[in-house]
Simulated assay, not measured.
Amino acid sequence: MDTPSPTTLEVFFDGGCPACRREMAHYRAQPGAEAIGFTDAAEELTRLADVGLDPMAAIATLHARDADGTWHIGVPAFREIWLRLPRYAPWARRFAWAIDSRALAWAYAVFCRLRLPRRCRDGRCPA
């Protein structure tokens, strides 16, 4: 019997956000995804407490924690996901300058700010 590969990254995403859920489902279906653990931050509050992650911060912005315990937040979290997926890794390396750009960080922050008020309007945000 084969032993499962250890995860090298745990990703905390907003499972209550349809766009976020679709994107994480896409990543889960990729070769190499077995190295990534996906945690729905809207549902797994105990896990958030275990790693010291504030529930509102976890649903507001993508967070990833690598095997060394280093946190990657926002666009850098996407880079860490992409680096573990063979289909995306060459692009993550080739366009590292763009991934690290302030413009992309700003665009992602705007997306998060626009998404969150709609997401929390019905009271489904974690307390």
Rank of each mutant, 00 (worst) to 15 (best):
Y27K: 01
I73R: 03
T7S: 14
R84F: 00
G16N: 11
P4D: 10
G123Q: 04
S5I: 11
A92F: 14
A107Q: 02
A109W: 07
R113A: 11
D2V: 14
P86A: 03
W106Q: 04
T46A: 15
A127E: 07
R28G: 15
A58P: 02
G74E: 05
L48M: 10
C125F: 00
D66M: 14
C125E: 01
D50Q: 06
A57F: 02
G16P: 06
G74A: 14
P126Q: 06
W97N: 05
W106H: 11
D100L: 07
T8I: 15
T46D: 12
M24I: 13
F111T: 06
I99C: 06
I99K: 05
R118Y: 12
P31R: 13
R119H: 04
G15K: 05
C120H: 10
R119P: 00
D100H: 11
T8H: 15
A107C: 05
A89S: 07
S101K: 08
T46F: 04
G123M: 03
M1N: 14
R28T: 07
L83K: 06
D2R: 15
L104Q: 01
L104D: 03
G37L: 13
R119A: 05
P6S: 11
A105Y: 07
A64K: 04
C125R: 03
S101W: 01
H26G: 09
W82E: 13
F12T: 01
A33M: 05
R102H: 11
A96H: 00
A49E: 14
E80Y: 10
F78W: 12
D68W: 15
D54V: 06
E44L: 10
R113T: 10
G37T: 15
T46N: 08
A107S: 07
P18D: 03
R115P: 09
R124W: 08
R28C: 08
D50E: 09
P4C: 10
F12W: 09
R22T: 10
A60M: 14
T39H: 11
R84N: 00
H26K: 08
L48R: 10
W106T: 10
P126V: 06
F95V: 01
A64L: 04
P126S: 05
R87T: 07
D100E: 10
P86R: 08
F95Q: 06
M24D: 00
L62P: 03
F13R: 03
R102A: 15
G16H: 12
D66N: 13
E44H: 08
L45V: 01
C17M: 03
R84M: 01
A109R: 11
R21G: 03
L116W: 02
T46Y: 03
